[in-house]
Computed example of a mutant assay.
Amino acid sequence: MAGLFSKRDLNVLALSDRDDLLALLRGALDAAGPDSVERPGLERAVALVAGAPAMSPAELRGRWARERIEAAGVEVKADSVVAIKALRKAEPELSLLAAVNLTKDAAAVER
Rank of each mutant, 00 (worst) to 15 (best):
L94C: 06
A108K: 07
P40A: 04
L87Y: 02
D35M: 03
A83P: 04
M1N: 08
E91Y: 07
N11M: 08
R111V: 09
D17C: 03
S56C: 10
A50V: 00
N101K: 13
K104N: 14
W64I: 08
R88L: 04
G3N: 08
R8Q: 06
G3K: 09
A50K: 11
A86I: 01
E110N: 08
A98E: 09
G62K: 03
A99M: 14
M55P: 03
L29T: 01
T103P: 14
V37L: 12
V82E: 12
L96H: 07
D105R: 13
E38Q: 14
L60G: 07
V49G: 06
A31L: 07
A107L: 04
A106E: 08
R88Q: 05
L48H: 13
L21Q: 15
K85M: 09
R61F: 11
L94Y: 00
R61L: 11
A83F: 05
G62W: 09
E75W: 14
L96E: 01
L48C: 11
D20L: 12
L25Q: 01
V81E: 15
G51D: 02
D30N: 10
S56K: 07
A78D: 13
L4P: 09
R44F: 15
L48Y: 06
P57C: 04
V12I: 08
L15S: 08
P57K: 03
L21H: 02
S95E: 08
P53M: 10
R44P: 09
P53L: 12
D9S: 15
P40H: 05
V100L: 12
L102N: 13
E70V: 07
A31W: 06
V74Q: 03
L15Q: 07
N101M: 15
V109Y: 15
